[in-house]
Design a protein around this nucleic acid. Structure first.
Lengths: 202, 202
DNA sequence: CACAACTTGTGAGCGACTAACAGTACGGTA
DNA sequence: TACCGTACTGTTAGTCGCTCACAAGTTGTG
C-alpha cells in the first residue's frame, strides 16, 4: 500500500484551493482587489463562484488565509520565562518575522501585505486578526484559564507589540520588501518601548 | 435678517441625520448589527434607504461616524514638548478619554463600543480608523511634512499606544462601562510600557 | 414670481454571499 | 467487479449592501 498519504480527494482539495488562491492573488495584484470580482477569480481558476466560496468563506480570505498565530505563540512560549512580557513578545516577533522573511513564502507574504496596505477592507480585517493573535499570545504566556487582570495586562502588552509590528510591516510593503524586515520590526518596537529588540543583543 | 444661524435646510439635514443614527443604534442594540438591514433603519426613520446612504456612506458608519482624531491630536500637541513621545501620547489619550467618559456622549460612546466589541465588521473598521488617528498624532507631533524615519518611529509609538487603549476600551464595554475608563486606559498603557500614565502623577 | 440649488424617492443594476437541489467522482465494501 | 454512501461541484434563485440615473418636490435668492 502507498503509505498513509492523503487521499486523492484531499490532494485535489488542497490543490484547487492553492490554484484558486494563486489566481486570486495574481488578479488582485494586476487589477486591484476591489476591481476584481469573485466571478473573475472563479473563471480564471476554471471553477464556479460557489466553489470559491466553499474554499474561502469570504473574498477577503483569499488574501488573508494563512494565520501565523501558532508560530508567534510558540516563539513567545520558547523565550525565557524570566523576561518581562514586552521583551518576550517583542523578541519572539522579531524572530518569527526573520524566519518568514527568509522562507519561500516571502514573495507570497509580500504580495499579501502589498494588497493589505492599500485596500481598506483588507487592512481592517488584518488588524482585527491581530486580536486573535493577541489572544494566542496571552494563552501562550498565561495558560488557558488566565486571571482576568493578568490577561488584561498581557493583552495590552501584546496588542501594543503587534501594533508596532504592523507599522513595520506596512513600511516594508510600501518599500517593496527592500529593507530588512526583522530590522524594521525591531526598530519599530524600539521606537515604541525604548528598548533593544534585536536578538543578537543579550 | 435672523443672524447667521444655520439655514432651514441645514437644520433639517442635521436633524434627519441625527434621527437616522438614533434609530439605527436602537435597532442595532435590539436585534444586533448583522440582523438589522439598512431598509429596517430607513423604515424606522421614515425615510428611504437611499436617504440613509446619502447621510452615511456605509452601514458601518451609522455606528462609527464621529471621529475623535482632532481631539486626540490637540491633546497630544498640548502636552509639554520635552516629554518622550510615548508619554506625551499616552497621557493625552488618558486625558481625552476622561473628557469623553464624563461628557453627555458617554452613553452614546458606550453603545457604540458595545456594538464594536461583538461585531467583527465594526471592530475591524474601528481598528482601521486608528490608522487615521495614528497619522493625526504623527502630524501633531511632527508637522505636515515629516521626515519618513521620524514618522515611522512616532507612528510605531502612536499605534502601540492606541492598541493598548483599544484593549482598555474593549474591557470597559464588556463590563458595561462600570470601571473607571481613564483608569483602565492608564493601566493598559502602564502594562504595555512599564510607566505611569495617570496624570495626577508627575 | 421665476430660477437655481438642494434634498429626496424610485427603479434598475452590480457584486458579495447563502441556501437548496442535482449531478458526478471518489472510497470502501461485498 | 459491482455497489453505495460520502464528498465535491455546478446551477439557480434570492437577500443585502451599495451605486447610478432620473424625476419630483422644497428651499433660498434675484
Amino acid at each position: 500500500m502507498s503509505g498513509e498519504g492523503p487521499s486523492l480527494r484531499e490532494r485535489r482539495r488542497v490543490e484547487t484551493r492553492r490554484l484558486i488562491q494563486s489566481h486570486a492573488l495574481r488578479l488582485f495584484a494586476e487589477r486591484g482587489f476591489d476591481d476584481t470580482t469573485v466571478n473573475d477569480v472563479a473563471r480564471a481558476s476554471g471553477v464556479s463562484a460557489m466553489t470559491v466560496y466553499r474554499h474561502f468563506p469570504t473574498k477577503e480570505d483569499l488574501v488573508l488565509h494563512g494565520r501565523y498565530d501558532h508560530l508567534v505563540a510558540a516563539g513567545v512560549a520558547a523565550r525565557p520565562a524570566d523576561e518581562p512580557p514586552v521583551r518576550r513578545i517583542g523578541r519572539a516577533l522579531v524572530e518569527t518575522v526573520r524566519d518568514l522573511a527568509g522562507s519561500a513564502d516571502r514573495e507570497l507574504l509580500l504580495a499579501r501585505l502589498r494588497l493589505m496596505v492599500d485596500t481598506p477592507a483588507l487592512r481592517a480585517r488584518h488588524l482585527d486578526s491581530q486580536f486573535a493573535t493577541q489572544q494566542a499570545i496571552a494563552a501562550a504566556l498565561l495558560g488557558d484559564a488566565p486571571e482576568p487582570d493578568a490577561e488584561f495586562r498581557v493583552g495590552a502588552a501584546a496588542s501594543a507589540c503587534l501594533a508596532a509590528m504592523h507599522v513595520a510591516l506596512t513600511r516594508w510593503a510600501r518599500e517593496d520588501g527592500r529593507p530588512d524586515l526583522p530590522g524594521l520590526v525591531a526598530a519599530a518596537l524600539a521606537a515604541a518601548f525604548g528598548e533593544e529588540f534585536g536578538d543578537d543583543v543579550d
